[in-house]
Design a protein around this nucleic acid. Structure first.
Lengths: 210, 210
DNA sequence: CTATTTGTTGATCATATGATCAATAAGGAT
DNA sequence: ATCCTTATTGATCATATGATCAACAAATAG
């Protein structure tokens, strides 16, 4: 087996000099994992040690700790909301139950990630505007259209309001909270619990036409 | 109007020398509000300034910041779970719906407090055992008995499991999370939303006998 | 009024923190 | 092999942090 010199990574040697883009990405990745674990008040020296670099190097790629955290937000939250979710939710050629299950299957895969859930909670507690922007977006792009779809199938006198939808949503989100914030034992696969929650909701408010 | 010298409280003067018990309680109260707002990594000097005392005085009443936080936990969480909740939940002389509404009305009044909710989340993220102990207790004393009651009224083939109960529970708790963690607009009175959530749950799983 | 007790302060310590910058050395070009 | 660019480091700064303790002063007793 022939190995190129550059293939050999000696952990003891100071393996330095990465291409800037690569190093920057390595830092962001490490920062996501680090801040998710210890919180946004985690110290730059600890992050640097975990990355195997010096603390001062961090400030070569980010002008402040705050801007590093911005990069973390960007990595974890920006452009991870599928733009076609709102469209697929209102596609009445598909049964509403299927649409809702498809959405929450996708969405829960995203938000039940350790990093997503914990950084979202840390930043929420810190009062970052990120969270309210994100949830406003959710409200406008997901829950509002969804409410319209539920109303379109309402048979009984009982009619769902936004608070009922937040209740459905919160019950599902809470699975991730139990798992990643409180570290409680949770079902390996949450899809069954999600399915039941959606069915209970639809049983109360909507009746499929066919 | 004759005023005793001791009745006059001059805010500018260093009004010192409180009875130890009183001072200690003042510090704990201030610490609860302070840590709920800024998190458990809030600095002792800031807390002291807010209380109008010196930072060193804190360490006269608590041997470390950690022990002060323990006192905060004690103040907010210990002995605030009514011991008769589990009993009243299994009192079958009362309709299950009424029992559940009574419980969640009481319980939500507790956990929807700003301090309760935020400190619980901060400590959960910090990995404090407080949270898991608390939720284990909730599971054993509330949700498990409640599951038994639901089963006793199960008519259909569908039978609730613990995950369904956590879903109900989480959907309700999430109201407080939206309000105090994400600072979103929420209904002034959550009792209606709670009522609907409980009714949806019971509609799916339990039929009252009478 | 004086003395005693003790709740409270201000100065201080050792360490930790975000940030800066000149000096260094890795890796490609010549 | 030698030079040159620049990614990386190590020393350093100013400030902040939890914690300690001798000195101070407010309330009470004699």
């Amino acid at each position: 087996m022939d190995m190129n010199k550059t293939d050999i990574i000696d952990p003891k040697s100071k393996r330095r000099r990465l291409p800037p883009d690569e190093r920057r990405q390595q830092i962001v990745d490490g920062a996501v994992a680090f801040f998710a674990e210890v919180g946004l008040e985690g110290k730059t020296r600890h992050l640097a040690k975990r990355l195997g670099i010096t603390q001062s190097l961090l400030f070569n790629y980010f002008e402040s700790k705050e801007s590093l955290i911005e990069a973390v937000y960007a990595q974890v939250y920006i452009d991870r909301l599928s733009p076609d979710w709102s469209q697929r939710l209102v596609d009445r050629s598909v049964p509403l139950r299927d649409r809702m299950l498809a959405f929450y299957t996708d969405y829960s895969k995203l938000i039940f990630e350790y990093e997503w859930m914990r950084i979202f909670m840390f930043s929420g507690l810190a009062g970052a505007e990120l969270n309210r922007r994100y949830l406003d977006h959710m409200n406008k792009m997901i829950l509002q259209p969804l409410l319209g779809e539920v109303h379109a199938l309402s048979a009984n006198s009982k009619t769902a309001d936004m608070e009922d939808l937040w209740n459905l949503h919160g019950g599902i989100v809470y699975i991730g909270i139990r798992q990643h914030i409180y570290r409680m034992p949770c079902p390996d696969d949450p899809s069954l619990a999600i399915e039941h929650a959606v069915d209970r909701f639809l049983q109360a408010f909507a009746v499929e036409q066919d």
